[in-house]
Amino acid sequence: MRIRVRVNGREYHQEAPDHWTLLRFLREGLGLTGTKEGCGAGECGACTIIMDGRTVNSCLVLAPEADGATIETIEGQAEGGKLTRLQEALHKHHAVQCGFCTPGMVMSIEAFLRVNPRPTVAEIKEAIEGNFCRCTGYQQIIEAVQEVTGQRQEQEELGHA
């Protein structure tokens, strides 16, 4: 099917097989390999993108379902090479280790902060529970989010005994 889709502000008109997932279309059809496949089954969230304003697991969306949609992926975040405040915070707080979950994690948090700019820790945890991270244990990710929302009370640090 010929798909018309707006991705990171740019219009694309492109053919894709009907049975391709949106994830595969983004990665192989459009060359946007930032979004990753972690399980192909909608569990791990590595493939999270924003579609028409909502986060979805792009491995469980067919490419043709995105016809007419507005899509945001990780590649559209940093504009002109300038990191977003969230990306800066993740960088500063060592919230990224292997990086494979990171694109999906960024999109989940980005969508979340648009509707909840001053969340509690519990709300942050709820918002990212569909994004598995095997490396960080999530703590420094949460601290990075709190930096963005201006809610850090005190520095969380490595204690020295």
Binding site: T33, G34, Q77, A78, L83, K92, T102, V106
Partner: peptide, 21 residues
């Protein structure tokens, strides 16, 4: 010092390429 990591920027922007890419 808690210096920022040398490999975060490309990971946090989706530019880092893994074998599957």
């Amino acid at each position: 010092h808690g210096t920022e990591r040398i490999d975060t920027v490309e990971k946090v922007t989706g530019a880092a390429y893994y074998t599957g890419d």
